[in-house]
Amino acid sequence: MDKHDEKTEILEPAFGSSSLNPFCSRRQFLKVSGVSIIGISALGPVLARGATKPLIIMEKAQGIVVADPIKCVGCGRCELACTEFNDGKAAPTRSRIKVDRNLNFGPKDVFAFREGQGNWGNGLIVQDFCVQCPHPVPCADACPEDAIVASPTGNVRVVDPNKCNGCKICLKACPWEMISFDPDSRKATKCFLCNGKPKCVEACPAESLSYVPWRDLTNKVPRRIATTAVIPPRKDAACQECHLPGAQKNLRQGMLSLFWEQVKDGKPASMRNIGSKWIDLVGVVLLPLVLIFVILHAGLRTVVKR
């Protein structure tokens, strides 16, 4: 109790007979801040509506469209068939299956052999489609209107156009950017496998697309790269204009280009363009020198021994 008395003794004169006349006393300040803290924390659930709602769990989809990148010719007929069936017109920009050439060449100044594949860009044609996520379903979890639901036919995730308000949150939520946006109706739209009869699969002329039962391929998806590029012999001849005989020509050219800068635009390039070739020049000059020295040493040893 002594401490309490001490406190009031100090505080009372400070508040009561203050000549500074502050715009609010400490007591008022504490009151207001306390109330506002309680008020804001009470508002929290209201502000965070949707963020704290439980994860949506849906039944697994029954089927999925898969693509064989080796067979795909990139004609885009699947996109046309998709939009023709769903929108009544050919509009590939809002197609639910997305076929494109991967031309993102990665960050600047990275070696060519380091550029990787997939999103790093290797110029191959990629086929992207909704993978019908089992759990979590990012688009459905993100939707503030709970408009993405499992369809009664095949449990595919489908946008309910009556609930969708066109906020585009699901477009950002999907890790593969597989939700399309219909600018006419201003609603999101996504692949729902055409109720079990995908029109893209029917339209594919190269038999690249197929409709298969859904199964979990997490961490099992093979590389999206055509490892067995087969070039018919008659086209092979044309390749050999540049690639003959194999790597040897390239090797010879590479070694030669260490010493002679290629002539560009009629005038030889200056030493400023030597780039990183000096590194190899160090080795190309030093290695034979040491080799010759060693051979001379060995030769001299045998000669003197005799």
């Binding site: 070696f111 060519a112 052999f113 380091r114 550029e115 990787g116 594949q117 290797n122 590389r223 790269i225 490892t227 790597a247 390239n250 090797l251 050219q253 590479g254 070694m255 280009s257 260490l258 070739k277 190899d280």
Partner: peptide
């Protein structure tokens, strides 16, 4: 990997 001309190797 180093010799110019052969340096542009694929990742695999």
């Amino acid at each position: 990997l180093r010799i110019p001309g052969v340096a542009a190797l694929p990742v695999n």
